[in-house]
């Protein structure tokens, strides 16, 4: 019974992770703007990895492999957002402006009203 629950949980995690990974890949290809593309990719970096590794942790039980997997998640959670940040920051500094549907003034006005 216990193993069935763990199996079901781990499969749910793996499938959710796969869904996030695929949706991230779709986002990278389908979005028009560089910044929204980077946003889609960074979702894959963090949450997708977390769910896939959580699924694998549930599969592996508690041993050395689990510890290594948790290390991988910690490393990726620390480095991937910073890497995305560095990428977007350098894009912004080299002069790539995000395409916005509204200008800043318009959105400020909308916030007040």
């Amino acid at each position: 019974m216990m193993s069935l629950i763990i199996d079901a949980l781990s499969w749910a995690c793996l499938l959710l992770g796969c869904f996030l990974g695929v949706s991230g890949a779709f986002g990278v290809f389908r979005f028009k703007d560089f910044y929204s593309r980077a946003h889609a990719a960074s979702v894959t970096d963090t949450l997708c990895v977390f769910f896939i590794v959580a699924g694998l942790v549930l599969q592996s039980g508690f041993n050395l492999v689990t510890v290594k997997l948790i290390f991988i998640v910690v490393l990726l959670w620390l480095t991937s957002p910073v890497a995305s940040h560095a990428l977007i920051r350098s894009a912004y500094q080299t002069g790539l402006k995000p395409t916005l549907s509204t200008t800043r003034k318009e959105s400020a006005k909308r916030g007040q009203s």
Binding site: L78, T79, V82, H85, A86, R89
Partner: peptide, 12 residues
């Protein structure tokens, strides 16, 4: 100039 990157690099 690069606060987030510098903090992260110091850590890594």
């Amino acid at each position: 100039p690069r606060p987030i990157l510098q903090v992260m690099a110091k850590f890594m």
